[in-house]
Each structure stands twice: as structure tokens, then as C-alpha cells.
């Protein structure tokens, strides 16, 4: 898994490539923690390059959404979600819990 973090004026974008599984999810959680500890709670996960996500990865997504939405201080948006990853999100019942955008630019524009 390769993670690229970009801090923009209105939000942070995390671009993820590769597999998000039990081996790599802790690294993603670490990047997220650094962002929220800096007091930034508007986050875009750009999933365009994600090949695979397991429940360990989904736990990071839902945990981040809970942290960001607390006190209405922000929110997580998902962008460019591949079809297979979307199937997992739907099965887990996650699709109503996130705003999902077709690409990173529209997700950033939402904030």
C-alpha cells in the first residue's frame, strides 16, 4: 500500500494505492491520526488506486468518520471508489454513512 497525503486549505486528501488489509490498515490509521491530532477533520479518501479492502480497512474508514463527525466538526468523503471496493462498502452497509464522489476533485469541492 502506498499513501500520499496532501494538506489543502479546506481539507486533507489521502490518496491510497494497493491493498488495505490487516497488514497495512495500521499505517493508514497512523496517517489519519496525525491529521486529526492536528485538529483537521475534513478528509477525502481517494480510493482510485485501491485494489482490495478488508474489514480491517473498513474499520479505519468508519472509525475516522466517527471521529470527524463528532461535535459536527467535519466529515470523511470517499472519492473514485472502484466497483469491487464499492461492493464491499454496500455489503457492510457503509454507503449511507459516507458522501461518495466520482473523483477527488468533486470530493474536495464538497468542502
Amino acid at each position: 500500500m502506498v499513501i500520499e497525503h496532501t494538506e489543502l486549505k479546506r481539507c486533507d486528501v489521502i490518496n491510497i494505492k494497493g491493498r488495505i488489509d490487516s497488514a497495512t490498515a495500521p499505517k493508514l490509521a497512523e496517517v489519519v491520526n496525525e491529521i486529526v491530532e492536528a485538529g483537521r477533520f475534513r478528509i477525502v479518501f481517494d480510493m482510485d488506486g485501491v485494489d482490495f479492502i478488508s474489514s480491517a480497512g473498513l474499520r479505519v474508514l468508519i472509525g475516522t468518520q466517527k471521529t470527524c463527525k463528532r461535535y459536527n466538526r467535519g466529515e470523511v468523503a470517499l472519492a473514485a471508489v472502484p466497483e469491487t471496493i464499492m461492493a464491499s462498502l454496500e455489503l457492510a452497509g457503509f454507503t449511507p454513512l459516507f458522501k461518495i464522489f466520482k473523483d477527488g476533485v468533486s470530493a474536495v469541492g464538497n468542502f
Binding site: S55, R59, G63, K66, S88, A92, G93
Partner: peptide, 19 residues
Amino acid sequence: PKINVPLKQRQETGLGLYF
């Protein structure tokens, strides 16, 4: 896992076996 519940009530475990 409880799938159709609001964010605050979502448990973060139990998805593996369900999948």
C-alpha cells in the same frame, strides 16, 4: 453485525465472518 444502523451505533467488529 448490525448493518442498517446510524453511524454512532455501528460496531467496528464482526464484519469478517459476515463477509
